[in-house]
């Protein structure tokens, strides 16, 4: 045994190492199962999968890519949060500051934005794949419903983030997108039956979204909190349900 092997053995046999890692990389059937079941992250998978399930042709990997996009936005988003203040006077200046003065600021911002767009596209493709393989059929009906809520959340995450740069693009896109709410039947002041319900410009569905009758600093704070805390939290909770269900029901496939 040479010197390096000896050091390696000492490390692997040390109590510290053994307290963290329970087994090595031996390629035995037993160890292959342990690899998955003994790891909190990997055990989101079952320890064995149907042969077709790992083929790119079947899943297009789109659920996984959607999840990866979510993770990228979480990591880059934390970095952006360090430098960004959701206050009308500062928000835009902070974007410039981030772009020009912070190390990797522009890169982090770009990755955050492109991953958000990519997540929307990936989640559509994922839904399309699940539809095409008929994977919403029993017993996976409920997971499809959870998926639809995740789809809506993905759009809401993206939409609330859109406002935060506080530039012309963002406030007008959000204004146009939210204006629909004032036309909600009964709940919007320009919608059908508004007088009957007694809503007005500062007290209706759009005012609930804006935090007032017009888009403004209050909207910025509201969207920031929804974007950075509320929607990510709800999305995470539903992702747990989504993944748990896939684990329980197994990936769909042709009947044996």
């Amino acid at each position: 045994m040479n010197k390096w092997e000896e050091i390696k053995q000492q490390i692997v046999e040390s109590p510290v190492w053994q307290s963290i890692f329970r087994h090595g990389y031996d390629d035995t059937p037993r160890n292959r199962v342990l690899m998955v079941s003994g790891n909190v992250w990997l055990h989101l998978h079952p320890s064995k999968v149907r042969r077709h399930g790992i083929r790119l042709k079947f899943t297009w990997c789109m659920g996984g890519i959607t999840f990866l996009m979510f993770l990228i936005t979480v990591v880059t988003g934390v970095y952006l949060m360090f430098y960004y203040r959701p206050v009308a006077e500062y928000a835009y200046a902070d974007m410039k500051y981030l772009e020009f003065d912070m190390p990797f600021g522009m890169l982090m911002r770009n990755m955050h934005r492109w991953a958000a767009h990519a997540m929307v596209i990936a989640v559509w493709l994922h839904m399309f794949r699940v539809f095409m393989t008929g994977s919403y059929k029993p017993p996976r009906e409920f997971n499809w419903v959870v998926g639809v809520i995740l789809l809506v959340l993905t759009l809401l995450l993206s939409f609330t983030g859109y406002l935060l740069p506080w530039d012309q693009l963002s406030i007008w896109a959000v204004t146009v997108g939210s204006n629909m709410a004032r036309a909600t039947p009964l709940l919007g002041h320009e919608g059908p039956f508004a007088e009957f319900a007694g809503v007005n410009a500062v007290y209706d569905a759009r005012a609930l979204i804006f935090g007032g009758g017009e888009i403004g600093p209050h909207t910025l704070l509201r969207f920031y909190i929804l974007h950075c805390i509320f929607f990510p939290l709800v999305t995470t909770l539903l992702l747990i349900v989504h993944f748990w269900r896939i684990r329980r029901d197994g990936l769909s496939g042709p009947a044996l």
Partner: peptide
């Protein structure tokens, strides 16, 4: 034999 190990194949 329609099933294979998640580790290493899927991972």
């Amino acid at each position: 034999d329609d099933k294979i190990h998640t580790w290493p194949h899927l991972v």
